[in-house]
């Protein structure tokens, strides 16, 4: 937990106030985290109404159990952990639109026609393909990608949210990326074109 992070200090103060029944503090925390929780839940379960239900459940869980917060992790990590738990329950309770990696070849076959134009795709189309491909990953692998790039979590925070060792997070990231490449290749997307299309290497390195 970062002690020097002003957002962390603000969040802890909000949770402390919520624990005493302060509705204004709850409203503030909801405003800060509501959309983030919804997006994370929606990316896990791909169903708007269920994602909204999960968001509501997460926030009510925070209201109910703010008093149990022990400060062992950042508030954001705690909230995302609750979100993940409730979203997984929602996925298990009702098989929604998540797909297993094993289903990917069939989809790839359907997409053969797209193969030829891979290099001509614009960046938006590539991004859309990539997000589609994420939907074919297992929950564990997609989680690591989402938490890293969408939620901006460090690998230590992901380990706390998911409840696994840090090395497992790194291993899952490695396999998730490998599978993504395979899926995208089957979809006819050539990732080697990215360097030409984006020129992001220099941006990142700087």
């Amino acid at each position: 937990m970062s002690e020097d992070d002003p957002a962390s200090d603000r969040d802890i103060e909000l949770v402390a106030r919520i624990a005493t029944g302060d509705k204004r503090a709850f409203e503030t925390l909801f405003t800060v985290y509501g959309e983030r929780v919804f997006r994370y839940a929606h990316r896990m379960i791909s169903d708007v109404s269920r994602a909204e239900e999960v968001t509501n459940d997460v926030m009510m869980e925070i209201w109910k159990n703010a008093g149990k917060f022990e400060g062992r992790s950042k508030v954001s990590t705690w909230i995302l952990g609750i979100t993940r738990h409730l979203a997984l329950n929602a996925v298990r309770g009702k098989k929604l639109d998540t797909m297993d990696i094993d289903d990917a070849p069939e989809i790839a076959d359907e997409s053969q026609s797209a193969q030829a134009g891979a290099l001509d795709r614009d960046r938006d189309a590539l991004a859309r393909d990539l997000r589609d491909a994420l939907g074919h990953l297992s929950n564990d692998h997609r989680d690591v990608i989402e938490l890293t790039f969408f939620q901006g979590c460090s690998y230590q925070e992901i380990a706390e949210i998911v409840g696994c060792p840090e090395n497992t997070v790194k291993t899952r990231m490695f396999h998730a990326r490998k599978q993504l490449k395979e899926i995208l290749t089957r979809l006819g997307v050539d990732l080697s074109a990215l360097e030409i299309a984006g020129g992001m290497t220099s941006e990142v390195a700087s």
């Binding site: 960046r123 590539l126 991004a127 990539l130 997000r131 994420l134 990608i145 989402e146 790039f149 969408f150 901006g152 990326r177 993504l180 490449k181 990732l191 080697s192 990215l194 360097e195 984006g198 992001m200 290497t201 941006e203 990142v204 390195a205």
Partner: peptide, 16 residues
């Protein structure tokens, strides 16, 4: 650097 570019694109696509 190709790996770096791929990750940057992944970041860009997922983050937004």
């Amino acid at each position: 650097t190709a790996e770096l570019a791929e990750l940057a694109f992944l970041n860009e696509s997922v983050a937004v």
